[in-house]
């Protein structure tokens, strides 16, 4: 599991890859939260290279979204595979964090 955080014209981009399981979330969560929340700006999260999300992975995304929301910033997820969309739909995570198909959609969503 790895994370790459970059900047796209005033938007934070976090690209996750691998399995977001219990063990990897323990290692990754601090980097994820510390990489996006202090910036306090709209954030898009690339899930295209994520193969699995456990409940703690959902919690990590939720924590980030809620912390950004308190700073009037938005998080949008994109690039989820069918398997990841199944998990997102089972948990109804998309009712809290918008999920869109691609990066351009994500940038448009946070700009709206």
């Amino acid at each position: 599991m790895s994370i790459a955080i970059t900047e796209l014209s005033g938007v934070t981009k976090a690209a996750l890859s691998g399995r977001l399981d219990t063990a990897s979330v323990d290692k990754l969560e601090i980097s994820f939260i510390a990489g996006i929340v202090p910036k306090g700006q709209n954030t898009i999260v690339d899930l295209s290279q994520v193969s699995f999300i456990a409940s703690l992975g959902i919690r990590m995304l939720l924590s980030g979204a809620r912390a950004l929301s308190r700073q009037n910033a938005t998080m949008v997820l994109y690039g989820a595979s069918d398997a990841i969309m199944d998990i997102i739909e089972t948990t109804a995570l998309s009712a809290i964090i918008p999920v869109v198909p691609g990066e351009a959609d994500a940038l448009a969503a946070v700009a709206a």
């Binding site: 939720l62 739909e89 995570l93």
Partner: peptide, 14 residues
């Protein structure tokens, strides 16, 4: 048997 509701505790007033 499933309904589309969010996880409990994830967000208030859902």
């Amino acid at each position: 048997l499933k309904t589309r509701n969010v996880m409990i505790g994830a967000m208030p007033a859902m």
